[in-house]
Simulated assay, not measured.
Amino acid sequence: MSKDNKANGPTQRSLRVGELVRHALAAMFARGDVEDDALRGAVITVPEVRMSPDLKLANAYIMPLGGQHAEEIVAALNRHRKFVRGRVAPQINMKFAPEVRFHVDDTFEEASRIDALLRSEKVQRDLDEDDGETD
């Protein structure tokens, strides 16, 4: 494996392992395995898990349904990282289980921000000017 591979993005293996970890986390959250007051009644989705190149770290991006108390839920999950790692390990069938770190998934927020920018008056005016141009 060359050093250039890191610049090209994640490997097929890291994508596959990330997907295995994502499914294991989603199943664990659906069962309610992690007990914490901050998680009580929360429906948590796991849109993405990004693995480090050495597969020792899994960055799990989560979002509670409705986006309510996301930071509080992430903090609670990070408090229970060792428990989560122990539950994920047997499901992914690897020699070493990755350390799991939780983060708030902000892709929906970012997409909304970009959408709002594209709909802004200034961008619409620029687009209308481009429509009037002839080549």
Rank of each mutant, 00 (worst) to 15 (best):
A70Q: 07
G32V: 10
A89T: 07
K6P: 00
R31P: 00
A76G: 06
S2V: 05
G9L: 08
M94P: 00
D115S: 11
A24T: 05
R40W: 04
D54G: 01
Q12I: 14
N5I: 14
V17K: 04
V46P: 00
T11P: 00
Q91W: 06
E99R: 13
R16V: 11
D37A: 15
E121V: 05
H69E: 14
D115H: 10
A111P: 01
R87K: 15
G67S: 12
R13I: 08
T11Y: 02
D135S: 11
M28L: 15
Q68R: 14
H103T: 03
S52I: 06
E129R: 15
A58H: 01
R87F: 09
H80N: 13
R22T: 08
R119Q: 14
E99C: 02
P90C: 13
D106A: 06
H69D: 15
R79Q: 13
F96H: 14
M63Q: 08
V46Q: 01
A60D: 00
E72F: 09
A24F: 03
P98H: 12
D33K: 13
P47C: 10
D36L: 10
V34M: 09
G41T: 11
V104Q: 06
V46G: 01
S14W: 03
T45D: 12
D128W: 03
G41R: 14
A116G: 03
F83T: 13
E19R: 15
R16W: 10
D37C: 01
R31L: 12
D106Y: 05
